[in-house]
Structures are given as C-alpha cells and as structure tokens.
Design a binder for these strands. Structure first.
Length: 370
DNA sequence: AAACCGGGGCC
DNA sequence: GGCCCAGGTTT
C-alpha cells in the first residue's frame, strides 16, 4: 500500500498541488528565500523544539550581533549564551559556538553542501542537515519535522508512534521520495507551511490541496492521527537559592554543561525534599549548610518563592539573601563574585534572572533609604 | 529502539 | 495546567 501511495504519477500530482497551494497559501515568514547557509544553520538550530513566534526576535538579534560564521567563531561562549538567554535548551547555543569554530578552522570557512556531511556539525541531526542542504544548497534532501511529520502521518494514515523506529522509517522514506530535484528548498518550505497551517494540530481539510489523496480523511480518522505522545509525569523539585552578598557583589555559580541550564550562570542551590517553613531554625540550618561551601554567612531575608517549569520538572524555588562575613567559595562548581552592575552582561537562566532582578530592586530600595 | 535532554510559549 | 514546538543525542 505504501508503495502504491508513492507511484510516479501520484508524486507528480502531489507536487503540483503542493506548489500551487504554496504560491498563494504559504506563510509570509521573514526568512522566505534565505540562502545563506550560516543564516539557515542558525535559524534551524533555533527552531529545534521551539515555535516560530519565539524564534523570530531572537534570530534577528543573534544575526545582528553575529552576522557571519567568523564573527560567531570568534565570540566568547558566554556572549553567545547571553544573546540566547530565555530561548531555552542552552546546549544549542554551545553547539553553535563549537560548530562555528569547526566550520572556520576545520572546513577552512568552506561549507559542506550534503546532508550527510552537515550532520557532522554538533547539534545537527537528520532534519537540520536536510534543511540546510535543501534551503541553502539546492540539494534534494528530504525533511521530517513536527509539521511534515503530522502531515505525512495523516496523508498515509500512519498509526505507529511517530517517534518510534518504525514511525521514523516510514516518514523519512516518504520524505525522500517526495522531495523534487527542482527547487527542493522551496518545496520543503511549502510542505512545512502546509503542515503548520492547513494540516495543523486542528486540521482544516476543506482547504487542503491534497485532500483527495489523504488516507486518514478517507477513513474519517484525521482527528485521531497522529496518536498523542505519552507524557512523562512531572517531578517536583524543591530548592533554596542562596543569594550571597558581599558589599556590592553577589556570588554567582556557573551551571555545569550537561546539567540543567548548562553554561548559564545562577545562584547556588540547596536541595530540599519539600518547601521550607521560614523558621529561625531553618535560617540557622541554611547558615550551617552554606558553611560547607567555605563561606561564613549571616542569614538576612527570605524573598518571595516562585515556581519554574523546565522539561518534566516543576521547580519550587525559594530565594534567600545571606550576607557574606568571611571565607571563600569551595563549592563543587565554578563561582565568581559579580558586581550588581555586571549582572546584566552575564547569561542567566530565566529563574536566575528573575531572582537577580528582584535582588537589584531590593538593593536599590535599601540604597535609597540609606 | 527507547529514554532522555532537563525549556518555553500558548490556550 | 495541558499540549505542542521546523529535534538531537545517549544508552
């Protein structure tokens, strides 16, 4: 059946219908027609697991700051992370830094143009490689991402889990047979736009240019395909964030690569198994635990606690302020005393930025009173 | 091939 | 709070 679905005649008609639809139904995205491989690469990395709406302002800002692969290769990783702050999945920014150095130093600044070669860049997998190859280099490489996967699954009425080996095999098989030799980048963009609009999560089949070929529409199962992915349970995490103050400086730690917020800066955390009671007893306990990091501190104040979701975790964060009295950081991760005025230049996690902003406000208020 | 990665926006 | 997002890497 799958073989019949992609006969030469079927493919030719499918392509004509998709192209005709795209001419009037395609989205007016800011990057339509972009061919610069560097710009396409940065854009596609940003779009991994991230909505177009979220990416647009970040891409604009990123390319203004790092307009060429050479400028990115020459930048400090912290500077790249600062531009990335708030977009999430920070390993992508570190991969861009590494990849830029690789392109400049190992490739001599010369881009490779096949999907296979492009996959050797860190953070570039089958989708991103196919996207760069087709958009920037006019290679007839197939693509499968969220929009095309949903579209293909409905088109062929695929019942397998799209993330399973079987599901992926079926999707990529179709993608590679369906992409044309002529203007493959434009065609791939058309497929994505079709999957993002007409064949979105809520399908609008009456507007679909290939509804006559859609197997799940024929079977009346468009609403049930693709199957919902199972979701992992949320795990609650309770942490106490210690804002250590020493004059006009705060102690920031750098989150290790491979852990939450890897590469970003933030405040040292004490793990708890539940929320704290804000008692005198807790205050003394905190002082004694901070002493294990080599710093003698005096508890100063409880700040407003807040929640922050990251992937499958729900963080319950309780920031406190403690005055440094003596000692130096001997904790398990890199740390630095950073001036209040310098906080704006450091890459902080969204939660860390929230705490930093509140501390700045508190200190300004106290300063005005003094 | 499944599990994990450990974010954030939108409704 | 549930659902989804122009995926990639690890085990």
């Amino acid at each position: 059946m799958e073989r019949d679905a992609v006969s030469g005649e079927w493919v030719a008609r499918f392509r004509r219908n998709v192209r005709r639809w795209y001419a009037r139904g395609g989205r007016d995205l800011p990057w339509v027609g972009e061919r610069d491989p560097y710009v396409v690469w940065v854009r596609e990395i940003m779009l991994q697991q991230t909505t177009v709406t979220a990416v647009v302002p970040y891409l604009d800002r990123f390319l203004k700051r790092f307009p060429t692969v050479e400028s990115l290769a020459g930048a400090e990783s912290a500077e790249v992370l600062r531009v990335w702050e708030g977009l999430g999945y920070y390993s992508r920014a570190r991969n861009l830094s590494r990849g830029a150095k690789m392109i400049v130093e190992e490739w001599g600044g010369q881009w490779r143009n096949t999907a296979t070669e492009l996959q050797s860049l860190p953070g570039v997998g089958p989708y991103t490689a196919g996207a760069i190859a087709s958009f920037a280099f006019d290679q007839s490489a197939g693509i499968v991402e969220a929009n095309t996967a949903r579209f293909y699954a409905r088109l062929l009425a695929l019942r397998s889990d799209l993330h399973s080996g079987e599901g992926r095999r079926q999707l990529w098989s179709l993608a590679e047979r369906i992409v044309p030799r002529d203007r493959p980048g434009e065609f791939n963009q058309a497929l994505i736009d079709l999957g993002a609009t007409v064949c979105g999560v809520t399908p609008q089949c009456q507007e679909c240019p290939v509804r006559g070929s859609c197997r799940s529409l024929e079977l009346g199962e468009v609403e049930r395909i693709p199957a919902r992915a199972s979701r992992r349970d949320v795990t609650d995490v309770f942490e106490l964030l210690v804002v250590m103050r020493r004059g006009k400086r705060l102690l920031l730690i750098q989150h290790p690569d491979g852990e939450r917020w890897g590469g970003m800066w933030g405040f040292p955390a004490l793990s708890r198994d539940r929320a704290l009671a804000r008692s005198r007893f807790d205050e003394r306990l905190i002082e004694s635990e901070v002493a294990d990091w080599g710093c003698d501190v005096e508890f100063q104040e409880w700040m407003d606690e807040f929640q922050h979701g990251v992937t499958r975790f729900r963080l319950h964060l309780q920031p406190i302020v403690a005055m440094w009295r003596s000692g130096s950081w001997e904790g398990p991760v890199t740390a630095e005393w950073v001036g209040i005025d310098e906080l704006a230049t450091r890459p902080l996690s969204v939660a860390g930025r929230r705490v930093a902003t509140r501390v700045e406000r508190i200190l300004r208020h106290n300063g005005a009173q003094a």
